[in-house]
């Protein structure tokens, strides 16, 4: 696959602190790559490196086969967490400014946001602002879209619309690099790179990232009591309805519950992405 964006053994140090450490990452044509990680994992620094906003302390960054440059900027669309829109300009004025900067003035405002063309961006609901930011970033039909937490703070409907837009772009051949810590969103990516402490600690498709990780499902009469004792034992417990999911061995879970005179049906089931993420990141943090 042709790599639109690639980092090879990239390290970014600030003094003695490595915000990004030996990261290899690539985004191919028509591929949606999710950069998954907790706050401070190094996701935004990787994006800044790829955009050429900072230069790596070590390693190589390439966009379309060359180092980031003025020429590569024309082929990228970027939506930062802060959206990068001018609140005191209308949707149309923001569109015109960006289109003019990219010499793509012949492209008209997309119908999805044209109803808001004369409204000031600052007066729009956040979901619509994000749609505008996405449309503006896509106005020059970039080959690579870089989206930093694109659905942060928006409702489920707006999130679904945005992801529809992202998938549509990818189907037309645009490579998309998207950072998120939302697991539902991550599951929509073709490939994931999980970051922790500046490292890529896992990568691949959702199934590959989850791997053969399993959790224990415990069903008992009083899930609240069971939760309390498992939590007190230092286990990470998730509640789904009245079912508890614990990343531990079934014997350990049974032993803890029995010790507290709680009866439960315990079964081992495949982990979901969130559980796999917690497991990977916890292990990564210990590195």
């Amino acid at each position: 696959m042709i790599a639109l964006a690639e980092t090879r053994n990239v390290t970014m140090r600030f003094g003695s602190f490595a915000a990004v450490d030996s990261v290899d990452l690539s985004v191919g044509v028509g591929e949606v790559v999710g950069l998954l990680g907790a706050n401070g994992a190094g996701k935004t620094t990787v994006i800044r490196l790829l955009l050429g906003l900072v230069r790596p302390s070590q390693g190589e960054v390439s966009l379309f086969g060359a180092p980031p440059s003025m020429a590569t900027r024309r082929r990228i669309g970027y939506v930062p967490q802060t959206l990068g829109l001018y609140d005191d300009l209308t949707v149309q004025e923001n569109w015109t400014f960006t289109a003019s900067a990219f010499d793509s003035t012949r492209i008209a405002l997309p119908p999805s946001i044209s109803d808001a063309r004369d409204r000031l961006v600052g007066t729009l609901p956040l979901g619509l602002q994000r749609r505008v930011a996405f449309a503006v970033a896509f106005s020059h039909q970039p080959e690579l879209l870089v989206l930093d937490e694109p659905t942060s703070g928006v409702g489920p409907l707006s999130r679904a619309r945005l992801w529809q837009d992202i998938r549509d772009s990818a189907e037309h051949g645009t490579g998309v690099l998207v950072t998120t810590h939302n697991m539902e969103e991550a599951e929509q990516c073709d490939r994931l790179a999980v970051m922790a402490g500046g490292h890529v600690v896992a990568e691949g498709t959702v199934a590959e990232v989850i791997g053969d990780r399993h959790v224990v499902e415990a069903r008992c009469d009083s899930w609240q009591d069971a939760f309390s004792v498992l939590d007190a034992e230092g286990l990470i417990v998730q509640v789904q309805g009245d079912v508890l999911r614990v990343p531990a061995s079934p014997q350990h879970v049974e032993e803890v519950l029995t010790r507290h005179h709680l009866r439960a049906d315990v079964a081992t089931v495949p982990a979901n992405l969130e559980e796999a993420f917690v497991s990977i990141v916890s292990a990564g943090a210990l590195r």
Partner: peptide, 9 residues
């Protein structure tokens, strides 16, 4: 900023 490498804390 690409002209400089990140060095400061």
């Amino acid at each position: 900023p690409s002209a400089r490498r990140g060095r400061t804390a």
